[in-house]
Design a binder for these strands. Structure first.
Lengths: 209, 209
DNA sequence: TTCTTTGAACTGACTGGTCAGTGCAAAAGT
DNA sequence: ACTTTTGCACTGACCAGTCAGTTCAAAGAA
């Protein structure tokens, strides 16, 4: 059922080639942007002939779209897993949000290039892969919104919060803090960054009495 | 001896042309990205011949760099003004942060395309204007960091907060929430969005007892 | 006032290079 | 047998940047 539209019966070899191409493309596009990255570069970095790129993907844009789907799929699964894990442990929704923040940080730590590329493309309009992007964004944000809704329902979160906006704000908080971490203070530990964001989430910014 | 990059003695006419080029470039690049936007497009949208672009700017990249400097200059001024205004009114640092959040929203409301373009480029490496971007980013973030530092000094904010990370997280919160607002729920009012972010800043997310 | 000069500002056709995508025969892998 | 990859030559569109020539407002000359 799963597996994307254009991956009907990928042999193991083919799948390995695709993976190499994803990895090559993601770093190059993160650094330079989609248009500034050439297919020749991608092929070279992947250690593959140019013809192979076109044997495996219909076009440069399609390669990129599938890359987006693939990456956001990983992120969504990771967020969902974090939310469900804390739920299973019978902890509150704020803990679930905190766990999702951590999951987000772990993801960005592992795939910084993908994150960068995703942010760079997310608010662009007029591009070929725009509809793909919308779908894929909704998948990820929906997980956060879901937890917020549940929190409001159980009374753990204020009824007055604006779910979509708060979800976006939380995602932004994690995204930007993490990208800053990776770009400008890579020596910091994940725990460090997580602690700072937890504090913000739980309103422990003001000084104690 | 060209007139150097920083526009020392631009005539009124020249300045008007530059302004038109900025406006044309900012929307096109926000929509399509830098590399996907052609100089011909920029010239056409500005109602100017291609040669004029090169008469006014040394290259496409230089046009873009000056655009970045120009835009971030406006933002920084606006943030600083908000911080100083609340300080003058003798209010606390949390109020100053809140005022800066609003100033950020007002800016994004007025210049959504610039914001979009800025976010898309901010974490890219290996690009010509990278050093410009670093400088310009630091200017803006420094204003937020300054207020956080003052808040810690006066005891109004916890000593345990991590100033650079918290500043980045706050910026991210505003940036992403605002871009989402503009892209996906443009019917919302600024006050609405501001209220949601205020709540998050002040830890009023958990339900009341 | 009316004419002339000056140079900054602007124009757009043109050039040289780049790049996505193609085609295909031979090789390698399964 | 068949799928997949290779290597490489080729094309056609597209695009950053150039440059010889044009416009025009304003300063000065008559």
């Amino acid at each position: 059922m799963e597996s994307s539209s254009t991956t009907p019966g990928g042999s193991a070899r083919r799948e390995a080639t695709r993976q190499k191409l994803y990895e090559a493309a993601v770093t190059l596009i993160a650094e330079q942007g989609f248009s500034a990255t050439t297919v020749d570069e991608i092929a070279e970095r992947a250690g593959v002939a140019k013809g192979t790129v076109y044997y495996n993907f219909a076009s440069k844009s399609v390669l990129f779209e599938e890359l987006l789907r693939h990456g956001v799929g990983l992120l969504t699964a990771s967020l969902r897993e974090a939310a469900e894990r804390t739920a299973g442990e019978g902890r509150g929704k704020v803990d679930a949000l905190d766990a999702m923040i951590r999951a987000g940080l772990v993801f960005i730590d592992r795939y910084p290039a993908f994150t960068q590329l995703y942010v760079a493309e997310l608010w662009r309009t007029n591009r070929a892969w725009n509809s793909t992007l919308l779908v894929v964004r909704q998948q990820a944000v929906a997980v956060v919104e879901g937890v917020l809704h549940e929190g409001v329902a159980t009374g753990e979160l204020s009824e007055e919060i604006d779910v979509p906006l708060t979800a976006a704000a939380l995602v932004g908080m994690v995204l930007v803090a993490a990208l800053d971490w990776k770009s400008f203070q890579p020596e910091r530990t994940l725990d460090d960054v997580h602690a700072a964001l937890s504090r913000l989430l739980q309103g422990r910014v003001s000084g104690r009495p």
